[in-house]
């Protein structure tokens, strides 16, 4: 028996909107730790890891570890039917081939339930090693989204370089080239507007903008984004989910031939 009641249902709606274009089908894993997911995109270039900790739910009952295969597009369709202020409860019985999403309006005058068929998904689980990153950049998530969108109108790939000067996003394409430098800036009115750069070693890595643009679909989840980089390792783009967990996107770099 599984019953997870999330008062801020909009968070789950935003989570689905942030990953449904990158991943088609995925297993949601439910344990005493929380509600989580790990899935790769179909070309195995990027990986998404989601965690919603059990403490973040108003009610969290998970009698035994459960893995539920879902088509994310279908799940997003159902969650779109929940109001932004609705409380969402996820329910499943042991051995059932369906999951139920229950939506309650804040005043309790409208209660809906949507039953979705589960699917068997044979997915590989990858071990993500704990890593010390050479450079960690925290910046406003909207700024990162803007940069990725702007650069993708010029080129297909972005080179992200971190030096003492700041973080530079560069691209080249048929029509020309572009460089955007963001300097560390902590003298802002709101802490979430700051750009903070922690650098141990200078880093320069190249990534496909097609994927970074997928990641920025998570912008509504958090006002800041953290980009962790090490030479010759996948980048981690993390959006924290208020007091509950995170969505982390890992992207393998492109290397020169």
């Amino acid at each position: 028996m599984l019953e997870l009641r999330l008062v801020q249902g909009s968070l789950l709606k935003k989570v689905l909107e942030s990953i449904k274009e990158l991943v088609n089908d995925a297993n949601f894993d439910c344990s005493s730790t929380g509600f989580s997911l790990q899935a790769m995109d179909s070309s195995h270039v990027a990986l998404v890891a989601l965690l919603l900790r059990s403490e973040g739910f108003e009610h969290y009952r998970c009698d035994r570890n459960l893995s539920m295969g879902m088509n994310l597009n279908n799940m997003a369709k159902m969650l779109k039917c929940a109001g932004n202020d609705d409380i969402i409860t996820i329910k499943a019985d042991d051995g059932s081939d369906t999951v139920t999403f229950m939506f309650e309006s804040p005043t309790q005058d409208k209660i809906s339930d949507f039953e979705m068929k589960l699917m068997d998904i044979d997915s590989e689980h990858l071990g993500i090693p704990e890593a010390e990153y050479d450079a960690i950049v925290r910046m406003p998530s909207a700024e990162f989204a803007r940069i990725c969108k702007d650069l993708s109108s010029i080129g297909d790939t972005v080179v992200i370089s971190v030096t003492k000067e700041g973080v530079k996003f560069s691209t080249k394409g048929d029509i020309g080239a572009a460089n955007i430098v963001c300097r560390q800036n902590t003298t802002v009115d709101k802490p979430d507007d700051a750009t903070v750069i922690e650098m141990k070693e200078p880093v320069s890595l190249q990534f496909a903008l097609r994927y970074t643009n997928f990641f920025t679909k998570a912008t509504p989840l958090s006002s800041t984004v953290t980009i962790s980089l090490s030479n010759e390792l996948p980048v981690v783009v993390e959006y924290k989910i208020a007091e509950m967990g995170y969505v982390r996107f890992y992207l393998a770099p492109k290397i020169e031939e």
Binding site: H44, V45, L47, L126, E257
Partner: peptide, 14 residues
């Protein structure tokens, strides 16, 4: 333009 690496080259299957 560079060669796109796969994520599975970095993270072992568990």
């Amino acid at each position: 333009k560079g060669v796109q690496l796969n994520i599975t080259e970095f993270f072992p299957t568990t």
